[in-house]
Design a protein around this nucleic acid. Structure first.
Lengths: 143, 143
DNA sequence: ATTACTGCAAAAGATTTGCACTAGG
DNA sequence: CCTAGTGCAAATCTTTTGCAGTAAT
């Protein structure tokens, strides 16, 4: 069982099949899905699934602090990240894919910011925008 | 003249009074305004100003790479930042204010990410979420 | 004089909400 | 049981778009 389900359970929330499936996708997928992506991925297994249920579950997870939102990736939709460890997200502005990038300094910075700003930091959104290697090549070769 | 107006001019765009005013607010304000905030701030001076004009101008500035978007600050609206220097934004999740925080390591990280990821980085969004000192106090004392 | 820009209203699109029904604990 | 969760549809809210009129160069 992943930490999302554990979190829901210890918060006293019900573990419905829909929620289990949504948490599984968030936990497994590396592409930081949007609500719409989760919905379409689950539709074959849950033909009556509602997009509203996906949104409601994502909001619950967010309020519990179990997922972070990354903002949109040029596609106008909110992307969700279940990895709470301080890390960097790399967004390709062309293909809208999002990957993770670990950088040791990130953790150190968060502590520095908290100490020097007086803020009680609850979460972070560290996103770099640019062209991924594949899109750089596609851009260079013709097109 | 600030760099936003210079950028618009050298891109061959017209410098209308509305755009000058929008750029002035972006340049001067330290609170990383939303389209709605800019609109309301300018309404007294431009009674016929349209929200659509604000959005259109912000999109032009964004496409020219003269401003960055920070994502929403818990208020569901896009916040804009005219400071292109690598820096951190601190969002208070209670009062939705956004402040800047300079941290020397930020520039170094961007270079590291670019070298090691193969991405051509065009911009960054480094946002920490938490409670600002005022809201921490307000939270502690009573409420 | 052109033609990009503005402002209005309508449209679009993502997310939220109300409510009756269902099912998890 | 009994209440939280689901699914549907309608509502909401931000942002975009079409177009006729206006103004910057």
């Amino acid at each position: 069982m992943n930490h999302l389900l554990e979190g829901l359970k210890s918060a006293g929330m019900r573990l419905t099949p829909q929620r289990v499936a949504i948490c599984r996708i968030l936990h497994e997928s590396k592409d930081h899905p949007t609500a719409m992506m989760i919905y379409h991925e689950l539709l074959p297994q849950f033909p009556t699934l509602s997009l509203a249920t996906v949104y409601k579950t994502l909001n619950v997870l967010k309020e519990l602090g179990l997922v972070h939102t990354l903002g949109d990736a040029g596609d106008g939709m909110e992307h969700y990240d279940a990895d709470l460890n301080p890390h960097i997200n790399l967004v390709c502005v062309r293909c809208h894919r999002v990957i993770d990038f670990d950088e040791a300094m990130v953790s150190a910075i968060q502590q520095t910011v908290e100490e020097r700003s007086g803020y009680k930091i609850q979460g972070a959104r560290i996103v770099y925008y640019g062209l991924c290697p594949e899109c750089r090549n596609r851009h260079a070769n013709g097109k």
